[in-house]
Write a protein that binds this DNA or RNA. Structure first.
Lengths: 196, 196
DNA sequence: TTTTGTATGTCTATCTATAGGTAGATGAAA
DNA sequence: TTTCATCTACCTATAGATAGACATACAAAA
């Protein structure tokens, strides 16, 4: 792995654990076996560095989700609404349980009032992309789903957006509460509610 | 108002906007018209200061909610489940719309991995108290509510805890997304979903 | 083939600003 | 005359950032 990528990895992990302002170039440098001036060689300043982290994180996360219109299960059938939700919840569950850390953008979003504009803008992109992904995925499934056939089509997108924002918000909040309580079962309570 | 309270006010506001590590004693001092050494007169160190902020915040928040077993509406009737939920959602809506700031504990929870233990412990108390409040309030209403009569009583508390954690998580997440997006309507989308 | 040039990645050393915190003087109030 | 609340002055550590030296590697020119 390139040094640049190592720096991004370390920075991401540290921010997810402690927040933007608790991470310094020196600390990142030490953890990657170089000096802080070498960190500045790759990223002229902290804003650039963290912006790169957020962009890469967003990309990776969306890749992990896959294309919202190409989700098929083991039998080759298009995902149902419930399967989409379950798939989406799993992405966050993994992030929490595998890395034992919050979502990067939950942390940055919480601090967003004190971040460089560029960083909070990228954080917002993460949120908006997630909402888009969910709406797109749910939309394609909803047309095949009888339960929504009563809904006027003009309102469908609005309704799905509400669902999407709700899911994203609940999952972000669940990770925060779960981590603060030191109890992963808190996350599962929310995850289960979302799949009811 | 006492200088001590002024310091707590300013500190709370600043943390809610920018996070724990973006707030310094000097900044707090300047905003309250004193010197940083005077801040240390009231609070020997930052951990003490922020712990006091969190405790006061939790107290105030619970006071604002009222006693969970004494909630009555205009007609003098005990709150229904929906009324309880609506009452609870309103408490956060106020915090967001009046102060234009996140919940203090959403911010601290997100940073909790990098906070002094004492501070994150107090943050956790906020979360647990909220969950308790909701479970207690919902419990008293659920006994009167037909829709839950099928539920086995032994499972009721578990079920209500799931609902409570879910609501808290969704509201915290909604505030974060809303603030990052600079769009309060995001919060309302979630609030409406929770009251469906 | 040797030399020279240029880019890459790293370092040491350093700057300025700010952080958290302390010591101890001072003046007003009880 | 002691307590309270404030100040000035200061300390040490760390933050973000920069300048410029140095080594290596590889490519073009002599």
């Amino acid at each position: 792995m390139s040094k640049r990528d190592e720096i991004l990895d370390v920075t991401e992990a540290m921010i997810r654990q402690k927040g933007y302002n608790a991470v310094s170039a020196r600390e990142v440098a030490t953890a990657t076996g170089i000096k802080s001036s070498s960190v500045h060689y790759y990223f002229p300043n902290k804003t650039d560095m963290v912006s790169a982290v957020v962009q890469r994180y967003t990309e990776n996360f969306l890749n992990q989700l896959g294309k919202p219109l190409e989700l098929v299960n083991a039998s080759g059938d298009k995902y149902s609404v419930l399967e989409i939700k379950s798939h989406y919840v799993s992405a966050f569950r993994k992030a929490l349980k595998r890395d034992k850390k919050l979502c990067l953008c939950a942390v940055l979003g919480a601090e967003s009032g004190g971040l460089p504009d560029e960083v909070s803008a990228h954080t917002n992109v993460f949120f908006q992309s997630n909402i888009n992904w969910l709406v797109t995925a749910l939309e394609s499934s909803s047309y095949q789903d009888e339960s929504t056939s009563q809904t006027l089509e003009s309102n469908l997108k609005e309704t799905l957006t509400n669902t999407a924002v709700h899911m994203l918000a609940a999952l972000q909040g669940a990770m925060i509460i779960s981590q603060t309580a030191g109890d992963q079962a808190m996350f599962d309570r929310v995850a289960n509610e979302l799949l009811k």
